[in-house]
């Protein structure tokens, strides 16, 4: 499960929206690598969590036939940091999609463990490319190496049918 930055998909409206959560835990080594005194979830990995959430949504739209690659981070802004014990909720929506790729908008919320209070954490908008539809005509083989076993396990744990 290395490099999976979401724990569960909690909502999926095909072609439109996917909501996923990640529970932040003290045992994660990267929380302790920052310069500050408190362990926090690095922003780069929060962006990756949104990329995985939105990427799964885009991949699901083609039945995971397309190799969906993150091509561009359009916007990434954060107003809060996630500390151990909190839950990050990624809410990704497709704004545009065609044969070549898709654009997504995403809001990120933070859920407090005791009160259950939900507060805005940030926003990440992304652009994905369908690798096999590249304008240079390069070929990348039959196997979809983007959506491997880890994603398959995540989908099954979340009760989502896998191809």
């Amino acid at each position: 499960m290395r490099w999976l930055w979401i724990d569960r998909i909690v909502e999926l409206t095909p072609n439109e929206r996917l909501v996923a959560i990640k529970n932040v835990t003290m045992a994660e080594e990267h929380l302790h690598d920052g310069a500050g005194a408190l362990p926090i979830m690095p922003a780069s990995l929060v962006v990756e969590g949104m990329a995985q959430s939105a990427g799964l949504l885009v991949g699901h739209a083609s039945g995971f036939k397309e190799k969906v690659l993150l091509a561009k981070i359009q916007k990434a802004s954060f107003e809060r940091e996630a500390i151990p014990g909190t839950t990050i909720r990624y809410d990704a929506r497709i704004t545009r999609m065609d044969a070549q790729g898709a654009a997504t908008e995403g809001t990120i919320e933070l859920i407090e463990p005791q009160s259950g209070e939900v507060s805005p954490m940030g926003r990440v908008d992304l652009l994905f490319s369908h690798l096999d539809q590249n304008s240079a005509g390069a070929e990348f083989g039959e196997s979809n190496f983007v959506f491997g076993e880890a994603f398959d396990t995540l989908l099954r744990l979340s009760g989502i049918e896998t191809p």
Binding site: Q74, T95, L127
Partner: peptide, 9 residues
């Protein structure tokens, strides 16, 4: 190349 898709969207 990827910017062309972005501009189109």
């Amino acid at each position: 190349s990827i910017d062309f898709l972005d501009i189109k969207f």
